[in-house]
């Protein structure tokens, strides 16, 4: 399931890495403000849960089985920011400790499997539970959120692939295949997410982050029989706007970075379409993935150097973001 190295051109992979680093940095800050000093153990255990649950194989039809992605589920159970953290850590561990998913593709995998499902899933869940604030809406919301999050993630994959993939496949075909198959996968994901959420709701409703509005006020009896009523830990629904604005901003940054590299990329679809004398031209490239490579040199800078400069700049930006967040969390 995890994208390996070589599926996307280096610039797209690195661009996605920068976006992933930024999103993880934001999530770190937000999760910490929510979970406080519980962040490390709680997120660690939830990450272990997600790792385990992804190994549960669900039978789909005779012989075939699918497995849960869990992004939307995590967002509903522990909140979108903690969810992004947990799934990202799961992906990193799978990449570095289990050699599952390319190391250069880690950013892409985090975007596709942590950020998109959590953000989309949470957004849709919020929309549904805003219509009616009760148990049924929480369960319905979970179903719809998980269902939609899967094809959206698949379509994001398709978009990235068209922009910066390395294989010449017709755009329409990519979209049809990814979208169609994943609507089916999404139904399974939605069903399982909804039942999981409802079974948690039945036993420990207070644990479902997305259903905190269902919590009742606490009543306390003491030895002398008096009753102390603690104020309900209920909060007014937060406005949806900051979340939507944030999501759009992330999407724009993503689109910006990816298309910046991809539009200049000679690989992928456009390239095949417009370039017939493919074999002869290709051998001239030093960095196949870079537009700069097309003409041998750019403003006098040799191709290879130009490529390296690009990579270095991107790494610096990502590093700067991580560093600044580290300073903040350390303080």
């Amino acid at each position: 399931m995890h994208v390996p190295d070589g599926f996307f051109t280096a610039p797209v992979a690195i661009g996605a890495g920068v976006v992933a680093a930024a999103a993880v940095a934001v999530s770190l800050k937000r999760a910490k403000s929510e979970l406080d000093d519980r962040t490390a153990p709680m997120a660690g255990l939830v990450a272990a849960f997600i790792f385990a649950v992804q190994m549960l194989n669900f039978p789909i039809a005779a012989g075939t089985s699918g497995h849960l992605l869990g992004g939307a589920l995590a967002a509903i159970l522990v909140g979108p920011y903690t969810a992004v953290l947990c799934v990202s850590v799961v992906l990193a561990v799978q990449g570095f400790f289990f050699a599952d998913g390319g190391l250069t593709a880690l950013g892409i995998n985090i975007v596709l499997m942590a950020i998109i499902p959590s953000a989309i899933g949470w957004g849709i869940f919020q929309l549904v539970t805003r219509v009616a604030r009760n148990r049924a809406s929480v369960i319905a919301g979970s179903f719809v959120a998980a269902l939609i999050s899967v094809p959206i993630a698949a379509l994001t994959f398709a978009v990235l692939f068209v922009l910066g993939g390395t294989a010449p496949i017709e755009t329409g075909a990519v979209f049809a295949a990814m979208g169609g198959v994943h609507v089916l996968v999404g139904i399974g994901e939605g069903l399982i997410t909804a039942v999981t959420v409802s079974s948690v709701l039945a036993v420990r409703p207070d644990l479902v982050y997305g259903a905190r509005f269902l919590t009742k006020p606490l009543v306390l009896k003491t030895a002398t029989g008096e009753q102390v009523v603690e104020p309900a830990r209920q909060e007014a629904p937060k406005p949806l706007r900051p979340f939507l604005v944030g999501s759009v901003a992330v999407a724009l940054v993503l689109a910006g970075i990816v298309s910046f590299f991809a539009s200049s990329s000679p690989d992928g679809l456009e390239r095949v379409a417009e370039d017939e004398g493919f074999l002869g031209a290709a051998t001239d490239h030093a960095f196949g993935g870079f537009a700069l490579a097309d003409y041998g040199d750019v403003g006098g800078i040799p191709v290879g150097i130009a490529g390296v400069i690009g990579v270095v700049i991107t790494l610096l930006v990502g590093g700067a973001i991580l560093w600044s967040v580290r300073q903040k969390t350390a303080a």
Partner: peptide, 8 residues
Amino acid sequence: PQLLIQIA
């Protein structure tokens, strides 16, 4: 970041 290491 420390927190990521701790979570892992």
